[in-house]
Nucleic acid binder design. Structure first.
Lengths: 230, 230
DNA sequence: TAGATTGTTAATCGATTAACAATC
DNA sequence: TAGATTGTTAATCGATTAACAATC
């Protein structure tokens, strides 16, 4: 069964929703496909296609109604408030995420953080931090489904296993170990190190006076080669 | 000019390199396409295709030579060590990234952090933190090309402008504002809030006893409808 | 040799975009 | 009406995969 709601589409929908919320708070009532396209960095045709696919109609002259779009997106995406998450590994990244203010209108609540030695944490943290020994029990009694994994690399796979054993259904993985989605547990990997390396590469490539790819075989020469051979 | 090194390919190459480094440190000499595919979560055919595209050959029986692959990937990707970055906004996220240990073998050095009020930062930070007033001067004298943006949402666009004015060529943007790549400045956006919302959606979708998409028009019914109309 | 793995082709699959008729 | 924007089609573009001949 192929899903109509593929990952990229869902991300666009989530971004539309955020923009719409902001526009609404500014007092706007209508929005055009090119506005939304600009805001999230896609072509206006794709915005219209997305809404058309979900049967969210606009006006041929007046654009889309913001309230209507918001409601419908909430219906499709679910109002994700009251969702609880836990954070495993309350080091720098973990405690930063614990206090991240960018969550959409406080839709999420960090139920607890877990750490191997909660009492030794230096910085003050606004959520309860529990020892790893209480992880499984907490997940099951509080019915936690989603976790953020931010432990050191060397214990990543072990913590991954513990989370799966406890019945966690989704993990946002900040460790450099690439975890894999299984039938019972969805993994999204965010590898900050790779992201920075990638950005560096793109910058160097774009600012060099010569072509980085010159050292690679140039497929565009193939016609010339073929010509030369005749 | 279409580039052969598209973004997804570069990310795969960076991941191959990381895995190879680890394998080498474990004493391995050879690696097969299915090993690498497993490690980074892609099909073995894609691994072979990638190397074939870059003219990195293996042995029909013995797989790929790890040392050779490493060298060649370093040639193509560049040894990115000795690259300096700055971090703008030394709040939770910024200071977490400043001390992130996951960087590939210490390839990157955080030259400085910048904050609107460096003296008021609570947590101890291992890199010098300077006031925003010194941002432009520092970037230009130290020839910084890449910055990480981790300021509050409401000053994101202003900081973006300051970084561009100072000549920054690439920004890893952790704010929820979607910045756009321009000719002179490459932007990579990481929106942690959207990532969490997305993960939640995928989890809810997968664990519901009914089909989330049932409320959406079902294209697979079209044949049935067409049949019914005849 | 037999077996295993690469290298490559062709097919598939899907996402995006350009373009324009429809229509408000 | 004139003008602007949606809704949709068809084309394009590109990435991935299956499959298998080549060959070590």
């Amino acid at each position: 069964m192929k899903s109509k709601l593929n990952k990229e589409l869902v991300i666009r929908l989530l971004k539309y929703r955020r923009i719409l919320t902001q526009l609404k708070s500014l007092g706007f009532e209508k929005v055009f496909s090119n506005n939304l396209g600009d805001a999230i960095g896609v072509a206006p045709a794709l915005v219209r296609k997305d809404f058309s696919l979900l049967v969210l109609g606009g006006n041929k002259r007046g654009g889309y109604n913001i309230d209507y779009l918001s409601e419908q997106l909430n219906r499709i995406l679910g109002k994700s408030r009251e969702q609880k998450i836990i954070i495993v590994g309350m080091g720098k990244i973990g405690s930063a995420v614990a206090q991240y203010k960018g969550f959409h209108q406080g839709d999420f609540e960090v139920a607890a953080g877990f750490d191997i030695s909660p009492e030794s944490l230096l910085h003050k943290i606004e959520v309860p931090v529990l020892p790893m020994s209480q992880l499984k029990d907490f997940i099951q009694t509080q019915q936690i489904e989603v976790a953020i994994l931010a432990v050191p690399e060397d214990v990543a796979t072990d913590c991954h296993r513990q989370l799966k054993d406890a019945g966690i259904r989704g993990i946002l993985n900040f460790t450099p170990i690439e975890l894999k989605t299984t039938e019972n547990c969805i993994i999204h990997n965010i590898n900050i190190g790779v992201e920075i390396e990638n950005l560096f590469f793109q910058v160097v490539k774009s600012s060099l006076p010569f072509d980085v790819e010159a050292a690679l075989p140039d497929l565009s020469d193939e016609d010339a080669l073929a010509d030369a051979e005749t």
